[in-house]
């Protein structure tokens, strides 16, 4: 088995809801409530789920933009929360991010040279000619003309902007890139270009990706392993082929069934009934029981939280209705 680059164990983030220093504060919002997974070297691990399920919060905690309420994040076997000084710098060099909206992630007041050059200046102290050359190389790596280094972000299309964001993430030769919905903000026609660029870069540079997406077609195209989140919890985790071939959890099944097929004879995907449960006051027992198609009036689903079990080898899920094949 490949080395585990990033390991997340029992990660949770509760936001204090409402209220201020005068009132005692409302109920806490349990955006992420006990999530565990790992990312291996050179692989793409995909985190999928509906909006509001907490997948972006997981990314923010890994990027140290939010502090976890509970749980640990380890990078190369070391606890990330203990990093200080040089260790922290090294972590910030090795872990980079590409966000969804390329209009918000590039400073409109900076030239491309300064945008892509920022990590190089901060970490390697590059200046002048050396910086210009390195930025030129990076622009070529992502399929842009080096002349564009003197342009400003508004002179590019959305796809080109996302290429700039990718070049910036590559600048320090990182090991892990967190891709938070990297193509959701782009036109459908250029999504494939960006995805293929990401796949090529991964192959050439041995990168690991943590891909956060709600688009199951993209996940199937790019990922090696898949984790499904629902209202702050992981409900299923499997290799890509296993996930798409032998889905276990009813929520994953429903997600897959809701993807429209590009075939006029197949009826539109079925939707999941009901609404996503609220993380402020999540349902008791299994959090999916309010919408579950195979839920029967058993007190089990309603009252007991299902265990996180390995059903097949490397295929975990949390559902009372799924019986283990290997013990």
């Amino acid at each position: 088995m490949a080395n585990r680059l990033l390991e997340v164990e029992g990660l949770a983030k509760h936001f204090r809801g409402g209220g201020n220093w005068l009132t005692s504060g409302g109920d806490s919002i349990r955006a992420v409530d006990g999530v565990s997974f790992h990312v291996e070297e050179g692989e793409t691990f995909a985190l999928v789920g509906e909006s509001g399920c907490g997948k972006t919060t997981v990314a923010k905690m890994i990027l140290l933009l939010e502090r976890p309420t509970r749980g640990t994040i380890s990078f190369q076997g070391e606890d990330v929360s203990r990093f200080r000084g040089g260790g922290l710098r090294e972590y910030k060099r090795l872990v980079q991010a590409v966000f969804q909206d390329p209009y918000s992630s590039l400073n409109p007041r900076m030239q491309v040279l300064d945008i892509i050059g920022e990590p190089l200046r901060v970490h390697q102290g590059l200046r002048g000619r050396t910086l210009r050359m390195r930025v030129g190389e990076l622009l070529e790596n992502v399929g842009l003309n080096p002349v564009t280094a003197s342009f400003f972000p508004h002179q590019f299309s959305g796809g080109q902007r996302q290429r700039i964001a990718i070049a910036r993430a590559l600048a320090l030769r990182p090991q892990l890139i967190v891709l938070d919905e990297p193509v959701s903000g782009l036109d459908v026609s250029i999504r494939a270009q960006i995805l293929n660029l990401l796949v090529d870069l991964q192959r050439d540079l041995g990168l690991s990706y943590l891909l956060i997406s709600h688009d199951l077609a993209i996940v199937e195209h790019m990922s090696h392993r898949v984790g499904v989140m629902y209202v702050g919890k992981m409900v299923e985790l499997a290799t890509r082929d296993e996930f798409y071939g032998n889905t276990l959890h009813p929520y994953s099944n429903a997600l897959l069934a809701s993807v429209p097929k590009p075939d006029p004879d197949v009826p539109m995907g079925t939707t999941i009934g009901g609404e996503v449960a609220s993380p402020i006051n999540p349902p008791s027992g299994c959090r999916f029981h309010t919408r579950c198609p195979i839920y029967l009036e058993t007190s089990m689903c309603r009252e007991v939280e299902p265990d996180w079990r390995e059903i097949l080898s490397d295929h975990l899920t949390a559902c009372h209705k799924v019986e283990p094949a290997v013990v």
Binding site: L63, L64, L65, L88, R89, K92, R93, V95, Q96, A97, F99, D101, S104, S105, L106, N107, M110, D114, E118, P119, V122, H123, A165, R168, L172
Partner: peptide
């Protein structure tokens, strides 16, 4: 709150530089 500030934090840009340049 814009994403480029979050990215600068991810990169490890010092706070004074985020204030002055971003």
């Amino acid at each position: 709150e814009r994403d480029f500030v979050a990215i600068a934090k991810v990169i490890g840009t010092p706070t004074w530089m985020i204030l002055l340049r971003h």
